[in-house]
Amino acid sequence: MSGKRKKIVAFLCNWCTYTAADLAGTSRLKYEPDIRILRVMCSSRVDPVFILKALMDGADGVLVGGCELGDCHYQRGNYYARRKVAVAKKIAADMGLDPERIRLSWISASDGPRFAEVVNEFTREIEEKGDTPVKHEAYV
């Protein structure tokens, strides 16, 4: 990896993706450090506002991680999360922000390696896109 590090905000669900991140750590897997993790109890806790706030404030990317469909700790949370991400992407696009800076991935608790791969892959994508244009701009 070259150049300046990006800022990627990651909302990870407590039961799966966050646990996978934990596993990646305890397994000593290496992944790109551009990511800033926030633990939420369920991916459906991620209000589209959180995603938009991160992007408006200059995050280069936002990752939402949840359990595999059908495996949600709360039965249905990730189905709702998917709808919320759809809305966030739509509003972002309407506002002229790149919706591809928002990523939704399902990573189960036992899949530490996959967590590392997703982070690396997303970081690579964001690096290709470069800095978000709103990073240094003052918006109301």
Binding site: R82, A86, L104, S105, V118, E121
Partner: peptide
């Protein structure tokens, strides 16, 4: 909305 899930 399968297109919302990253094609990982």
């Amino acid at each position: 909305f399968q297109e919302m899930e990253a094609p990982y």
